[in-house]
Write a protein that binds this DNA or RNA. Sequence first.
DNA 1: CATGAATGAGCATTCATTCAT
DNA 2: AATGAATGAATGCTCATTCAT
Lengths: 208, 208, 208, 208
Amino acid sequence: MNTTKPKQERSRLSKNKILESAIEIFAQKGPAGTRVDEIEAKAGVNKQRIYAYFGSKDNLYRQVLLKVYAQATENEKLLKLSEKNIPEMTKTIINSFFEFHQQNPLFWRLLAWENLNGGKSLSDDDWKTIESNYIEHLRELYKTGQEKGLFDKKILFSTYLISIFAITFFYYSNQLTISNLLSLDMEKTDFQSRFINEVQRLFVRATQ
Amino acid sequence: MNTTKPKQERSRLSKNKILESAIEIFAQKGPAGTRVDEIEAKAGVNKQRIYAYFGSKDNLYRQVLLKVYAQATENEKLLKLSEKNIPEMTKTIINSFFEFHQQNPLFWRLLAWENLNGGKSLSDDDWKTIESNYIEHLRELYKTGQEKGLFDKKILFSTYLISIFAITFFYYSNQLTISNLLSLDMEKTDFQSRFINEVQRLFVRATQ
Amino acid sequence: MNTTKPKQERSRLSKNKILESAIEIFAQKGPAGTRVDEIEAKAGVNKQRIYAYFGSKDNLYRQVLLKVYAQATENEKLLKLSEKNIPEMTKTIINSFFEFHQQNPLFWRLLAWENLNGGKSLSDDDWKTIESNYIEHLRELYKTGQEKGLFDKKILFSTYLISIFAITFFYYSNQLTISNLLSLDMEKTDFQSRFINEVQRLFVRATQ
Amino acid sequence: MNTTKPKQERSRLSKNKILESAIEIFAQKGPAGTRVDEIEAKAGVNKQRIYAYFGSKDNLYRQVLLKVYAQATENEKLLKLSEKNIPEMTKTIINSFFEFHQQNPLFWRLLAWENLNGGKSLSDDDWKTIESNYIEHLRELYKTGQEKGLFDKKILFSTYLISIFAITFFYYSNQLTISNLLSLDMEKTDFQSRFINEVQRLFVRATQ
DNA sequence: CATGAATGAGCATTCATTCAT
DNA sequence: AATGAATGAATGCTCATTCAT
């Protein structure tokens, strides 16, 4: 298939295909439910390559998490926010998070498996490599906003951010059960954009 | 041991022990990670009883979900709220949900497994039996509150409730990853009670 | 098959059949070459039983060694030797060892695998349980013999015993290569009985 | 690295490195436990070379045996023995064998694997190439010794030689189990040299 | 000659479920 | 109702050997 490619290129491509396939399958079925054979089939490579490149299913899963977390903690749009954007910052964050979940529909799943799993898959050292660069930036802006009277001084940044994380995550992660419980169709774009608007309103009223 | 009990009584007890054990193990390990043998051991009954009473592992899991959902949708305290409680209703709901998660630490896990599972475990008919009695009650109060100008008319009840669900659920379900990401100790009672206060403040400011 | 047997009996029989089959196959093929499936087939039990009773292939091998070593270190005939038998003691020992190898043709194989294996299969505690009861008895007799001038005082008991061990073991363990090298047919009873006689003569002349 | 060497030279060197590495690994792990990959790594050549030079793992093993056996059947010192050395011949043989095992600690292992293996690795034709040149020489000397009354006429040369083979082989091959059984430290030089002395004494007294 | 990749079978172990006593 | 045993399909991982660049 890749016969025309030079060797190193082929190797890199194979490794990538394995990782991409693994992300999808681990996200769908979780670490326990994932079959190495399925990754093999989806990646279109030989199982041997998986073990040659990643050593074990466990480590492949770890690499999946590291890659996905790294993607999630990069956010150009949020990093570009400056002091003069503080007034619309909340809306921007909420938009950005909803957008992220829409474009990375596997993300909440991997996060959920990992939380259920007790976080056994990543070491402390792994976590150190997942420093989110945008979080500290937002923290600074929030503080400045509080000093300028643009944000409620009695609501900590962590409370503010966790709450936004929570609502955006939950909207996707628990769509199924909530839709059933409240008889809603949360997948409809209508519903979703209205929901986003209201959440923005909610946070703006609450904190500003 | 149970030799003095009448047969029917023993049977009921056995069934109960199986279900209780199953709840715990399914919550901890998920449907895929749960071993029938482990339930057998924990319940102290013979595997045959499990199959006699529940037919299959899948159906036992279904019964687990039905039971836990039923418990979760009962809420005396919220049902007792009346029109005159509307002003403190938001605080009460938030308190009540945090309390519920604290007292039922397995609940978010079962919910998370189920959402990851794509909800394949329950049928539409099953869902009809999980009508939450307190939700409609709260919806009425919220509407009344809106009419009386006590709640923001531009924020739907569903948005309001989903947001509260989200934050209380997420606080437990994602504790592990968020603690790592924000370098917090979310398990500490201090942090938690401060967080609850701020969330209450946030929602009160936002909606009232 | 065993349907008429009571349960405990069946269980004991199954366990025994597994162990007996394992002895044979481990002896023939060694720990690395042995397939659990083959033991399953030979024992006529289900693989699950092997794992239920023995936990793992490694532990089954360990049990095999313990059982066979225990058999090898029991020796009624040698234990019965008394002071008055000292003159023919050497012949008796040599006979007894050759006989043992003839009746337990798998023994040298297990010993050989184990020595090649670096003895990783048994723990120090395991070895403590393999106290040979007849060795100390022979050591006493040898000492008495030395004191009475019936055994050469310049040859230690350990040298004496190791040498006899060596020749009897080697006769079976290296039959194949030695037969080829010296163009002999060591399997023939003629050759063997002549060899035994000469070895006896050799040791008697050497030590008495 | 080898770019300055002529092609044929390189080829010969590679083949040799493969064989040397194979000897060590086959000796340590046996034919079943040996991995072609490990030989590849240790030899520092590519797997393809192994297959090009030796065809298969089985044949490589065969070549290993042939080489090692050839080394073992050469013995300058023993070939140099003449009639006038007959009196000390036994001591010389014993010394020479112990020395050989000390200098070729892998030898007994290969021999042991092969005996366990049932000798399937070498054909009759292979064996014909392993004619030991020193054995016939010793046989002659022994016969002369017997005629001169220097050796017991009732002990065959084969018995004599097999016994010496046995003791020297066994001292190394079964060190592990014997050390455990008799609570000895057979690795200590003290013990070993004393043992050798006593074995010499034993054989001299027995046969002369 | 070197090297990454592919093949295909094999192997220890596990598990949900059923059978028979 | 309790319990040991049997079934049969998986599953992660390994390995000798071959291919293709």
